[in-house]
Design a protein around this nucleic acid. Structure first.
Length: 437
RNA sequence: CGGAGUGUAGCUCAGCCUGGUAGAGCACCGCUUUCGGGAGGCGGGGGCCGGAGGUUCAAAUCCUCUCACUCCGACCA
C-alpha cells in the first residue's frame, strides 16, 4: 500500500480527550475516531489490526473444536424475560422498541439467544457436546465509558457457549477453552495471567479471568509470578486433576484475594501485586439458563435433563488497546508481528529524486510480489517526519532507501522493537524479511 | 448516578475576569530553498467562538437554560 494513497490521518499532538497511552496512540496513528462516548469507527489501519486479532482468536477457537456462527446484535426482550435477566441487567442494557411496539435490546451477551437455538434443535444427549461461538458487536450502556476501545460501550467480542450432558463434560469443555485462551493470547504477543474470578451477572460457580499486566489496568491482581510460565500444552482438560493442577499457582482478582492464603502459599520473591487489563473470561454455570429456558435433552436413560453450559468471552476490540498498552515506547506503537497491520514500512527518503524513487518503487514491487505486507511511504516529506510516522504506527520492520545507501548499493533495515539497524543489499533485506516470522 | 471540569480552525491552545466585529503554533494549499530522525523563506485558504434564549447601541466575553465530551468516585467484561 502506498502511503500517499492510504487513508491514514496521523495526529502530531495528543488529542485532549485521550488519557491513556493506547487511546492516544490509536488516535494519533489514525486507527480509530470517536463517534460518541465509548463508540468508535475503525479506520483502515485500525481495522487491519482488529481483523488480525479476530482471525487469531477464530483460528484458536476452531482448533479447540468450537464452531463459528453469527447471531444478531438485536434480540427480542422475550428471551431475557424467560431467563430473568431482563429486569436484572439494569440500565447497562440498551433497550429498543420497534415499530410494532415490541421490546427489543442490543445484545450485551448471548446466553439467552444461543440457549434458545439449542433447545429448539438439540434433543438427544447423542448430539452433545457442542461448542458454538460468534464474533459480534456487543453494546453495554456503561455509565462511564473511558480509555478508548478498552472500555467502550460498543465493542467486538468473541463469545463461545458450550453444551454438555453433565458437569464432568462441562468441566472438560471449560478447560479446553481455558487452554485455547492461553494459546490465543500468547499468539497475540501477550503474557496472559489467568486468575480465579467472581462470576458476576453471568452466574455460576467456576470462573477465570485472563489479564494482561499493565499500569493502566482496571483490575488489581495478586499472583504467583510462576503462573506466567504456565504452558497451555501442560493442561489436560480431560484430567480429573486439571483444577488442582492449575490451582497450584495462586492467582486472584482483588475480589477473590485472600491475603493469608497468598502469604502461606507463595514464597515472598514470587508474590506479585499488579494491575491488569481483563481480556477474557471463562465461566462454567451449569443449568442457570438451560433449566429456566427448558433446554433439555433426552439422557441415555430416556429422561429429560437440562444441559450443562459454560460461556467464554474474549474482548477482541479491547485486545487491540491492551496489546498497545503492553507494547509501545515514547515514539509510538510496537506491534507484535502476528497482529501488525503491515509487516514492513518502506521509506523513500527522497521521493523527489528520480533515482531514489525508482529504486524504492522496484523494492516495493519485489516485496509485494513476495507476499510481504508493505506500507510504502512514497510521500515528499522530510526524513524526520517520515521516521516519526513509521515509529508511531509501529510496524515490525522499517526499510529505508536514501541517496547515501543508494551510492553504496545498500538499504537500511531497522527493527522497530529494539531499534537495531543494519545496512545490507536490497536482495539480502528482502530475504531477511521473507525469513522472519 | 453523585462531584469536578472543558467546549474558539483538522490538532494543541490563547482571548473571556474588565463587552467594541476572531488569534498563535502545528497541520493544509501554492512557489521556493532544502531535506539521513517531526527543516527554512514568501504567499494563501480555512471559524454560525457547541446550541437556544436573554441583557446591551454592541456578546466568544455577562446572565439563564440546554447539549456534548473529559476527569474523580460508585458501578461494570
Amino acid at each position: 500500500m502506498r502511503l500517499s494513497q492510504y487513508f491514514l490521518p496521523l495526529l502530531r499532538e495528543n488529542p485532549s480527550e485521550a488519557q491513556i497511552v493506547s487511546h492516544r496512540l490509536m488516535l494519533r496513528a489514525g486507527m480509530i475516531r470517536q463517534a460518541a462516548a465509548g463508540i468508535y469507527s475503525w479506520l483502515p489501519l485500525g481495522f487491519r489490526v482488529l481483523k488480525k486479532v479476530e482471525q487469531i482468536v477464530r483460528e484458536e477457537q476452531n482448533a479447540a473444536g468450537a464452531q463459528e456462527m453469527l447471531m444478531p446484535t438485536l434480540q427480542p426482550a422475550e428471551l431475557w424475560r424467560e431467563s430473568g435477566r431482563y429486569e436484572d441487567y439494569g440500565k447497562e442494557m440498551l433497550r429498543i422498541r420497534d415499530r410494532h411496539e415490541r421490546d427489543m435490546l442490543y445484545g450485551p451477551t448471548n446466553e439467552e439467544l444461543v440457549t434458545d437455538i439449542l433447545r429448539n434443535t438439540i434433543k438427544s444427549y447423542r448430539d452433545l457436546p457442542k461448542n458454538l461461538y460468534h464474533i459480534q458487536w456487543k453494546f453495554r450502556d456503561e455509565v462511564r465509558p473511558r480509555f478508548g476501545v478498552m472500555r467502550g460501550r460498543e465493542f467486538l467480542m468473541k463469545d463461545a457457549y458450550s453444551f454438555d450432558l453433565n458437569k464432568e463434560g462441562a468441566i472438560v469443555s471449560y478447560f479446553k477453552m481455558f487452554s485455547a485462551y492461553m494459546k490465543t493470547f500468547k499468539r497475540l504477543g501477550l503474557v496472559p495471567i489467568p486468575v480465579r474470578a467472581e462470576t458476576g451477572p453471568i452466574g455460576g460457580d467456576l470462573s477465570h479471568e485472563f489479564h494482561i499486566q499493565a499500569e493502566t489496568g482496571e483490575s488489581e491482581l495478586f499472583f504467583d509470578s510462576d503462573v506466567q510460565l504456565l504452558d497451555e500444552a501442560s493442561i489436560d482438560p480431560a484430567s480429573p486433576q486439571v483444577q488442582s493442577y492449575l490451582g497450584q499457582w495462586y492467582a486472584a482478582t482483588d475480589e477473590k484475594h485472600d491475603p493469608a492464603e497468598f502469604e502461606a502459599r507463595v514464597p515472598e520473591p514470587r508474590r506479585r501485586k499488579a494491575r491488569g487489563i481483563e481480556v477474557g473470561q471463562v465461566f462454567y454455570f451449569g443449568t442457570k439458563y438451560s433449566a429456566p429456558m427448558g433446554a433439555t435433552v433426552a439422557g441415555p436413560d430416556g429422561t429429560q435433563v437440562p444441559v450443562e453450559m459454560g460461556s467464554y468471552g474474549i474482548g477482541v476490540s479491547r485486545l487491540v488497546g491492551a496489546i498497545i498498552e503492553a507494547s509501545h515506547d515514547d515514539a509510538g506503537i510496537i506491534w507484535p508481528a502476528s497482529v501488525a497491520p503491515f509487516k514492513v514500512g518502506l521509506v523513500n527518503l527522497r521521493a523527489a529524486d528520480a533515482k531514489c524513487t525508482a529504486a524504492a518503487d522496484a523494492l516495493y514491487r519485489t516485496l509485494a510480489q513476495a507476499g510481504i505486507e508493505v506500507l510504502y511511504d512514497d510521500r515528499e516529506e522530510s526524513p524526520g517526519a517520515k521516521f516519526a510516522a513509521m515509529d508511531l504506527i509501529g510496524l515490525p520492520w522499517q526499510l529505508v532507501i536514501g541517496p547515501r545507501g543508494l551510492a553504496a548499493g545498500t538499504v537500511e533495515l531497522k527493527e522497530r522493537a529494539g531499534g537495531a539497524r543494519q545496512e545490507l543489499s536490497p536482495e539480502a533485506a528482502v530475504n531477511r524479511l521473507e525469513g522472519s516470522a
